[in-house]
């Protein structure tokens, strides 16, 4: 009996180790070159050096429209993340903003590594007439610096905080 238990325990340990090993193999740690943050991103999302800038880190997923990006805004004049979010959404929905903008999920409170922020989801039409979905987190960091995390694609799945975004938010670390 004891032997069976040991064998089962060993098998379980192997499975767990496998799962852990597999888990670590499926994600990588991305550190902001400006040393503001780091997070874990699924391996299937590829960093785009030519699309990224010192302020924006851009990743493409497997789908033709899968896009993940983090933007450091610099100083903003807003007093709270809510002000930043509302001002941004006003501009997105106004003339000159996003075509056919539609708020699909109103602003909700979120927390990213102890920084309180707001998140929402919306749709808009790109230049080729495709309907795109975007989930966006607005944050206001110390010293009034705006920050944003966005995930977009051509399907409504992005608004339900898919695993890739959960992973990014759960493993987020500020290096403030």
């Amino acid at each position: 009996m004891l032997g069976k238990l040991r064998a089962a325990g060993a098998a379980l340990l192997v499975v767990v180790l496998f799962a852990l090993a597999a888990g670590t193999a499926q994600a990588f740690i991305f550190s902001d070159p400006a040393n503001l943050y780091s997070t874990s991103i699924a391996d299937s999302w590829v960093y785009q050096a030519y699309h990224s800038t010192p302020e924006i880190a851009v990743f493409y997923g497997e789908g033709d429209y899968d896009l993940l990006y983090f933007e450091t805004l610099g100083r903003v004049l807003d007093n709270s993340a809510e002000d930043l979010a509302k001002r941004s959404l006003e501009l997105y929905s106004a003339a000159g903003g996003l075509r056919d903008f539609q708020l699909e999920m109103p602003l909700i409170q979120v927390e990213v590594a102890d920084q309180k922020g707001l998140a929402c989801a919306y749709t808009y039409q790109d230049e080729r007439g495709n309907k795109l979905w975007e989930y966006r987190v607005f944050l206001l960091l110390p010293e009034g610096r705006g920050f944003s995390i966005a995930l977009s694609s051509d399907g409504p799945w992005v608004k339900n905080r898919p695993p890739v975004l959960e992973e990014v938010l759960a493993k987020w670390q500020w290096m403030l």
Binding site: Y50, H51, D64, Y92, A150
Partner: peptide, 14 residues
């Protein structure tokens, strides 16, 4: 030029 009160950009895949 530094935009004094920016908002997050909305990017699309290139």
């Amino acid at each position: 030029v530094t935009i004094s009160n920016p908002v997050p950009q909305v990017l699309q895949r290139q």
